[in-house]
Design a protein around this nucleic acid. Sequence first.
DNA 1: TGTCAATTGTCAGAGGCTGTCATTAGCCTC
DNA 2: GAGGCTAATGACAGCCTCTGACAATTGACA
Lengths: 208, 208
Amino acid sequence: METLRERKKQRTREALLRTALELFTTQGYEGTTVDDIADAVDVSQRTFFRYFAGKEEAALALQEMTVAHFLQAVRERPPHEAPMEALRQAVLEGWDALNDVIEAVVPVELYLRMYQVVESTPVLLAAHLRRSVEAEEAIARILAEREGVDMDTDPRPRLAVAVFGGVMRLTERQWSSGEDFSLDAMRALTVSHLEQVGPALSESWRTR
Amino acid sequence: METLRERKKQRTREALLRTALELFTTQGYEGTTVDDIADAVDVSQRTFFRYFAGKEEAALALQEMTVAHFLQAVRERPPHEAPMEALRQAVLEGWDALNDVIEAVVPVELYLRMYQVVESTPVLLAAHLRRSVEAEEAIARILAEREGVDMDTDPRPRLAVAVFGGVMRLTERQWSSGEDFSLDAMRALTVSHLEQVGPALSESWRTR
DNA sequence: TGTCAATTGTCAGAGGCTGTCATTAGCCTC
DNA sequence: GAGGCTAATGACAGCCTCTGACAATTGACA
């Protein structure tokens, strides 16, 4: 944050992002136009598009941070951990540290509300899912390197990540639609779901 | 297909769909405007939107058929099969019968080419993923009923489907980017991936 | 054949997004 | 600290997706 110019840019971006999220969570994503956001921040519509590739990018900026944060967490896992255990620990610790990461930009409460907007807005959910898939590719690469296997010939890295990703997305959805909408609840749901993957894949459920 | 009116409608819809897919696969999805499609079929742009909710819906019409077909296949699985086995059999048989289902509307070759367009066009991929997630919810419901469990208290139906869906989406992607782009190759990939889910989730991969 | 209803075309307009060009404002050197 | 340089912004103009409204057309049916 050296020059005045950069500080101004930073402030404009943050104002746009904060305002956008505020409007999205109050009037809904579709109910908010880019003009609404630009007007509220008192910049031209054109300027908005110079900071964000589109409305969607502003709406998913926090999710983007979450993903980056999670990727880093996976990279920092001790090498002796088994792949799935490394992923598991990365998410759990991730949820802990995320609070500070988010709070540095916007109130966490806004993040949580925005999560529900994403989950309940078809176009946003679609974009979110696509980004998740892209993240999975990156994670698979990290795992492959950790374990010293070749992703092009060994499908296990991508498979493990696909399974893990499937479970995590289910967890996200359950969380955002449940009543206890806190990071602690997310932790608990994550643990519970990962514990039950085995049973869910077992022979039959009726013998229980 | 009783009245002349209905026949005309059917023909218009098919012409729009076929033309749309043809253009998408030759000029790309983004490179094709709705006007291009409407003009080629000699219909007003407004009419296109009376048949398809949007450009996207036309592009994913075949995938929609595939999903519906797969859902039906799952429903028809014998009740004694374990959940994952029922899903597995449904996909495998699904790929067999799909040929006829598609060919009734457009050449299968167009379907295959369109698959690659979907996979390589961000907005289409995003929409496709969202639809897949919606389909997963429906499948979970079918499984829960088969097994006589309550989806609201037992996470296993959704978990099993999430895992299965994750694997299938990975399979789709590998398939569409591989060189052997046939339904047989898809079958083989499906079998192979499902076989390796277990190993991928096991402790460590280095002991191999 | 004439009435009714469904299908379509035309027009107007909102909203997302991009290219272009002039204007403004911070930065840096002499 | 004046002037030149460059980055940031604003102001248009325009394309594309999608929707509502109304008129014109065309098949259905008595």
